[in-house]
Design a protein around this nucleic acid. Structure first.
Lengths: 129, 129
DNA sequence: CAGTATCCATTACGATACTG
DNA sequence: CAGTATCGTAATGGATACTG
């Protein structure tokens, strides 16, 4: 509880918020997961794996991940051009985190039960939108 | 890699996405962190800890967390009314995850360096906004 | 192929005021 | 105290079309 002390806006009272912003902002999880799990990918291959993402958003997220040093982009000046994305060493250091997340998903059933219970108990409250 | 198999929309190719949605949707991290770290809180106490959150949003997030079974709400019918929020057993099971997040924050410096490097290398690209 | 460029729809969030 | 009700806005993401 001491090794991980970082400067943090005191009003958030939550030292892990910066990490969450970097690692769990939207779409970053599937991208990192795919690159970590299945290795190097071209742009269009990523699109095919994550079919619900548009090229615009995929580009934005890849840029962000590249800037944060979690992903490495390699441009091969050929015809047609070829670009490859792979996870960096820093990105790979997230693997234990992903493993912990993955383990925790055994509790998804309990979450589901809690929701059903809540919805039965409090009809019309708290549902997402 | 087998114990944590859950039903997942195949198009996201990312089995941890559901967990991320539940645990790392906006504001949930500071709320869970505070409740996990400092115990039971009244509504106004949470507001004071997380000063940038408005009562409306705090209510919404608390409802969601309650519905998902991560937080327990207790209403004491007194005058003035008193309500207490505490983390549930299920919520407490996230502690190792938070610890892993916390550990990873030693890498924030490296992220920062990557950003500076990127911004020097690629001026005007990929900056957030 | 690997993106950009636009435009639009949604929504999450913030500000503010009010109530049992 | 513990919220709810409204309203307005800013940001995100989706759809679509286009380019070196």
């Amino acid at each position: 509880m001491d090794a991980a002390r970082v400067e943090v806006a005191p009003e958030q009272a939550c030292p892990i918020a910066p990490v969450v912003d970097i690692v769990f902002s939207r779409w970053t999880t599937p991208i990192l997961w795919v690159l970590n799990e299945y290795g190097r990918h071209r742009f269009v291959e990523l699109q095919r794996r994550i079919v619900t993402i548009t090229p615009k958003v995929l580009t934005e997220r890849l840029r962000q991940l590249e800037r944060d040093g979690l992903v490495v982009r390699t441009y091969h000046p050929e015809v047609p051009p070829r670009v490859e994305y792979e996870i960096s060493a820093l990105g790979r250091s997230l693997a234990p985190l992903f493993a912990a997340l993955s383990e925790w998903s055994v509790n998804l059933g309990e979450v589901e039960r809690a929701r059903l219970e809540y919805d039965a108990r409090e009809p019309g409250r708290g549902r997402r939108t």
